[in-house]
Structures are given as C-alpha cells and as structure tokens.
C-alpha cells in the first residue's frame, strides 16, 4: 500500500513486488547470513559481558582485561562449566541461524525448530553431566564470611532435578515450531504463489519485449 498521500493506491506496484511481510514466509539466503552475523556478534558480547561480570564478582571492580584474565573464575576456564556451556552453545546458535534460511510456514523452518529443541536438551545433558550433576556455587567466589571465624565454604546444588525439569520444558517447546508451521502454512503458500506469478509475469514481459 502506498504511504504517499499524493499518490493513489498503486495496485501495479503492490501486485508486482513482495512486501516485507510476505518475504518472511519465503526462503532467503540473505536473511540466513544476516542472522549468522548478528547471532555471532551477540554471542561474543555475551561472552565478554560474562567475563567482566565474573571478574567483577571476584575482585569487586571492573578491571582491565589482563587483570580479568589472571583472576578469571574457575568456571570460565577451559573445562569449567561456564566455558563448556558457552562453547557448547555456539553450534546451537549456528543451527538456529541456518534455520532462518527457511521462511515461516515451511517444513524446513519447523524441522530446524524441532532439532534446535533437541540440541538444547543434548547441550543441557552434556553441560550438567560435565559438572558431575552438582555445582558448588562458591567455587569461583571462595568462602563467604557469615560471622567471626564462621564462613560458608561450599554451597552444593544438585542439578539432576533441574536437568529433568528443563528437559520437560524444552520438550514442550517443540510445540512452538509446529504451531508456527500450522498457523503460517496458508500465508507461506500465498506468498509462494505470488512469487511464482511475479516470476511468470516477468518472464512473459521479457519474452514479449
């Protein structure tokens, strides 16, 4: 629809171009590459933010990076739970970015959505098993003093229950890409039909010219 008040509704333009909304329902390589780039930038920002937060918790001040690297918490070192979690999450991020190639309402988008849920479950199991199902919350911070000569040295949290609970949530989440597929199927078909008709028309115009 033309937003220009001086111009009347341009049916020809509407008919011959795909709108922003319609493009969402069609496959697009450009969208996939854009998603990969943005997701990786976001991932790096989260990684850096976590390092700064961990450094802050440990030393009480936002130090320069060399300082943080020296005092970094055990969780963020290779093999530490946060490190494993962050590195293990990269394939999941890439998987969902690649899934953006497919338009909403396609089988590809739905299948990638379902695979992503299972990938998160797998990631959850690997990370939690890697932490031997129990996490000492005070491992990175050291002891917490609660009075003269008394301190809390360890706070262990068993993760088995959490693992099962989050697995259930992720299994439920499989419904979301399926629901999205069902709800967008019609729009996807319409957008696809429009794209085909535009292409046909263009081909016809070329042939005529």
């Amino acid at each position: 629809m033309s937003r220009n008040k001086n111009k009347d509704y341009d049916y020809e333009e509407e008919r011959m171009t795909l709108s922003r909304e319609e493009k969402k329902y069609l496959n697009s390589k450009a969208r996939m590459f854009k998603a990969i780039v943005w997701d990786i930038i976001e991932y790096i920002l989260i990684f850096v933010a976590l390092i700064i937060i961990m450094g802050y918790i440990e030393s009480g001040q936002i130090a320069d990076f060399n300082e943080i690297a020296k005092n970094i918490g055990t969780w963020l070192k290779p093999g530490g739970i946060l490190f494993n979690a962050l590195v293990g999450f990269l394939p999941i991020i890439l998987l969902s970015s690649i899934g953006r190639y497919y338009g909403i309402g396609t089988y590809g988008r739905m299948i990638f959505g379902i695979i992503r849920c299972f990938a998160i479950i797998l990631w959850l199991y690997l990370v939690i098993t890697g932490a031997s199902n129990s996490l000492n919350l005070l491992e990175t911070m050291g002891e917490v003093s609660v009075g003269s000569g008394v301190s809390i040295e360890g706070l262990h949290v068993g993760l088995d229950g959490l693992k099962k609970y989050l697995t259930l949530i992720m299994l439920c989440c499989i419904l979301i890409p399926i629901g999205e597929f069902c709800g967008a199927r019609k729009k996807h078909r319409r957008a696809l039909a429009k794209k085909e008709s535009i292409e046909e028309e263009k081909a016809r115009e070329e042939a005529a010219a």
Binding site: G158, L159, G161, Y165
Partner: peptide
C-alpha cells in the same frame, strides 16, 4: 567444617531441591 545436605520436592523420580552446605568455623 560441618557439611549437611538433603533432597526435597520429589518430581517424577528426581528432586527439584538438592542442596548441600559446608559451614566452616575456625576454632582457636
């Protein structure tokens, strides 16, 4: 060091609350 722990809130065979606490006292 006094350590104690327990599991609570059963949920389909696992426990949602699974805590252990280590309290250290430096006795002179």
């Amino acid at each position: 060091v006094l350590s104690f722990g327990f599991k609570y809130m059963e949920w389909y065979g696992v426990y949602l609350v699974d805590l252990g606490l280590d309290i250290k006292q430096n006795l002179q």
